[in-house]
Design a protein around this nucleic acid. Structure first.
Length: 474
RNA sequence: GCUCCUUUCGUCUAGUGGUCUAGGACGCUGCCCUCUCACGGCGGUAACACGGGUUCGAACCCCGUAGGGAGCGCCA
């Protein structure tokens, strides 16, 4: 039997990391088993569904690299099918028309809550027929006639056997007044029609599962396997929301995270393969097991994402990292044609950055002709006593036939030795002179990336008599 | 309120009755390395929610309690 999984988001917002993780698990399981992964858009909430949300979800899936084999299917395209199935349920007595008004239902719910009872439909219309005094063509919903006794038992792949008493379940609405199916009906029919073998979803759906199984049974269909994954919590252990900072997948992109890092972070939130922390996509596919999914909810750990992101900036595919870095430079309007190759920036900067945004912030001086000097750095490092060193440096560097790391390094060491000072006494002023601040990659690497022309020009500027005056007084 | 799920270091987790004086990772932290910031290397810190059972023996099995989460919509 071929495994078929699906990810079925509703297009009412962007793809957040909880959904992304569920999608990842579905995708991994399909890939591992050489099965099929389907994307289905559950757009039956006509009030809140938007095209923009659908596009945003699709974009995020693409950025993450979670490619689907089929779809996206849209539930609103399948209305005729739901109608046909509902006729069948109506005919077999598994569903009935309900003319109860929303007002009555609201009142009933409020009263039940007040009486500390579980709010539920009382089954008034279940007997069938049109209530007296009601026009049969009046707007009405169609409800499922849930079994009133017995229990629903199913084997959850994550949690083991789950048992629900039918008495706890009420007659849920299948079709709304406007003819559009509700979630619980649409999902059942779609999963059935699309041959879904494994439903992997958030554990907020555990309570829906017995209802869905009952519908399937009424249709004579056998239920798929279910795997209910725990939710992702915020750092404070509360349900993830906007106040926890970034929750949308694309927000993480904007903040400078790599898709590989986010995926690695998400896969380890709630799943493990022994002590392994770093997983390439191939390894994730190879080792993924539903049985190793965690049952308890997991709090999102932003620091670990940082660590993973740095790891992938350092160890990941440089061409891919460079492409993503280019996107970030473009966003802030820095023209990277005016400086070193992005892969060289990555090699030099990855070990001192947690995100690509940070890398861009720390690399501006490589791409501009006008350096911004940090006053404190100038004051501390570009003092009158070091100017002679810089002058020596300027002359020796200018004389270099080859602009390469070891030669540059030798020059700096030589100048320090000649002046009988420590390396730092020469390197640090030089660093401030060419970058404007006290932090940069190793000085020889920095100069290589900067290029000879820019290096000399900046030294000249600093050595100009006006420089100290201007910069020490600001 | 009712139903369901869940509980190992601050966080993510390993662990499926003895090999656990509980392992790894992130974080924090000490030392080393060092031209800055980092990276890296070597250490350190810190947990089986609680109470009863079962057993020769429980982090692992059972039952309670407490905490956390979810559901109870003509939302998904």
């Amino acid at each position: 039997m071929t495994v078929v999984t699906r990810f079925a988001p509703s297009p009412t917002g962007t793809l957040h990391i909880g959904g992304a993780r569920t999608a990842l698990y579905c995708w991994l399981y399909a890939r591992k088993t050489h099965g099929k992964f389907i994307l289905r858009i559950e757009d039956t909430d006509t009030e809140r569904s938007t095209q923009a949300s659908t596009a945003a979800i699709l974009d995020a899936m693409t950025w993450l690299g979670l490619h689907y084999d089929e779809g996206p299917y849209y539930q609103m395209d399948r209305l005729a099918r739901y109608r046909a199935v509902i006729e069948q349920l109506l005919a077999t007595g598994h569903a009935y028309r309900c003319y109860c008004s929303k007002e009555r239902l609201d009142e009933m719910r409020t009263a039940q809550m007040a009486a500390k009872k579980k709010p539920r439909y009382d089954g008034r219309c279940r007997a069938g027929g049109v209530p007296t005094g009601v026009d049969p063509t009046a707007p009405h919903v169609i409800r499922f006639a849930n079994p009133q006794s017995g229990e629903v038992v199913f084997e959850d792949l994550v949690r083991g056997q789950l048992v629900f008493a039918n008495q706890e379940l009420d007659d849920l609405v299948l079709i709304r007044t406007d003819g559009i199916p509700t979630y619980n009906f649409g999902v059942v029919i779609d999963d059935w029609d699309m041959g879904i073998t494994h439903v992997v979803r958030g554990d907020d759906h555990i309570n829906n599962t017995p209802r869905q199984i009952n519908i399937l049974r009424a249709l004579g269909a056998s239920p798929p396997h279910y795997a209910h994954v725990s939710m992702i919590l915020g750092k404070d252990g509360k349900r993830l929301s906007k106040r926890h900072g970034a929750v949308g997948v694309m927000q993480f992109r904007e903040e400078g995270y790599l898709p590989e890092a986010l995926l690695n972070c998400l896969v380890r939130l709630g799943w493990s393969h022994g002590d392994q922390e770093i997983f390439s996509i191939t390894e994730m596919i190879q080792h993924f097991e539903i049985a190793h999914l965690q049952r308890a909810p997991a709090a999102f750990n932003a620091e670990k994402l940082d660590w993973l992101n740095q790891h992938y900036m350092k160890q990941g595919d440089r061409a891919k990292v460079a492409a993503e870095l280019a996107w970030h430079f473009e966003r802030v309007g820095i023209e990277v044609k005016n400086g070193p190759a992005l892969v060289d920036i990555i090699d030099a900067q990855a070990e001192r950055c947690k995100t690509l945004v940070e890398m861009v912030q720390k690399s501006g001086y490589f791409y501009t002709d006008t350096v911004t000097y940090a006053a404190a750095a100038v004051k501390k490092n570009l003092t009158a006593d070091v100017l002679p060193h810089l002058a020596h440096l300027r002359a020796a560097l200018a004389a270099l036939p080859q602009w390469e790391k070891s030669a540059i390094h030798a020059v700096i060491e030589q100048v320090a030795t000649t002046a009988d000072v420590k390396m730092g006494k020469v390197a640090q002023p030089l660093r401030v002179a060419v970058t404007g601040d006290t932090v940069s990659p190793p000085i020889d690497v920095t100069l290589v990336l900067l290029g000879k022309a820019r290096t000399l020009a900046r030294l000249d500027a600093v050595l100009h008599p006006d420089f100290l005056e201007k910069n020490h007084n600001c």
